[in-house]
């Protein structure tokens, strides 16, 4: 006879979810493997095993980590800068009609501009070492700006009236009323933004070829027809982008209680 403990009850769904995820991954790896075997040419489509092998070889070299560090600093730097500028811009636009009238069309224009136009412009204006930072910044800032501004505009008006009537100072109103309303929008913006920062940042590097970047390594893979390298770097980008998205969500989740409960004295 078996008994079910509460620990079993809590781990079971987690294990089931993990099991399902592993099955899904295994399914798509099998599809990939099957397609690679069907094509029969490593140059066109490499097998997952070969990619993993190449990734292992690359990971044992110092230049691999140096390359990741180079792109990481610039792309994440662009993302963080965009987060700060986007939030400040949205806050200003929410209180000033003039700022709103000036920035909103500008943000829409930036949003609609093809990333390649920015890449070429930045290459004309600045050297390629700053390319990923500027391009990822330009791609992310409209997203953070728009989502945060939407959050600010969707704050609970009735609570803002309470604050106005009772004369609650801004430093106490922010964590009690404003941040709880805006935070979910900001988190959503960050989650979209971090993926976009990596996609646009690496695309910029592939065109601008800054020395020692992931984009340059991908371009070299194309020149030397090294499909395994191309796939290995793509796996690296997906892993970092996914990991960062989870990290941002986790960090903001951890910061949320402090942000929300810190104010009323």
């Amino acid at each position: 006879m078996t008994s079910t403990t509460s620990a079993d009850a809590t781990t079971h769904p987690l294990q089931r979810r993990l099991g399902r995820l592993l099955l899904v991954i295994a399914f798509w790896l099998a599809v990939w493997q099957g397609a690679a075997l069907a094509v029969g040419q490593e140059l066109l489509l490499v097998t997952p095993g070969a990619v993993l092998l190449r990734l292992g070889e690359l990971a044992r070299t110092a230049s691999f980590w140096g390359t990741i560090g180079y792109s990481f600093v610039r792309i994440v730097g662009g993302f963080l800068l965009a987060a700060v500028v986007g939030v400040l811009g949205a806050a200003l636009a929410s209180v000033s009609r003039i700022v709103d009238a000036l920035t909103t069309p500008m943000v829409s224009a930036v949003r609609s501009t093809p990333v390649v136009s920015f890449i070429i412009l930045v290459l004309i204006w600045a050297d390629s070492s700053r390319l990923a930072l500027i391009v990822s910044f330009l791609m992310v800032v409209p997203i953070i700006y728009s989502t945060v501004l939407e959050g600010i505009r969707n704050r609970d008006r009735s609570l803002l009236e309470v604050a106005a009537v009772f004369g609650v100072p801004l430093r106490r109103r922010l964590p009690a009323i404003d941040i709880p309303a805006v935070l979910p929008y900001f988190v959503a913006g960050c989650r979209i933004g971090i993926g976009l920062a990596w996609k646009s940042g690496v695309a910029a590097e592939v065109i601008g070829l800054p020395q020692g970047s992931i984009g340059e390594r991908m371009y070299q893979a194309k020149i030397f027809l090294s499909t395994a390298d191309l796939f290995a770097w793509t796996v690296v980008i997906i892993a970092i982008s996914y990991g960062l998205e989870r990290l941002v969500a986790w960090l903001l989740g951890r910061a949320q209680p402090r942000l929300l409960h810190g104010a009323p004295a």
Partner: peptide, 23 residues
Amino acid sequence: LAAVFQEDRLCEQLTAARNVRLV
């Protein structure tokens, strides 16, 4: 000024005491 509105208008995530101390 101070008011009791027709709706409660409380900060949902705060405790009763924190809602009061806010003002």
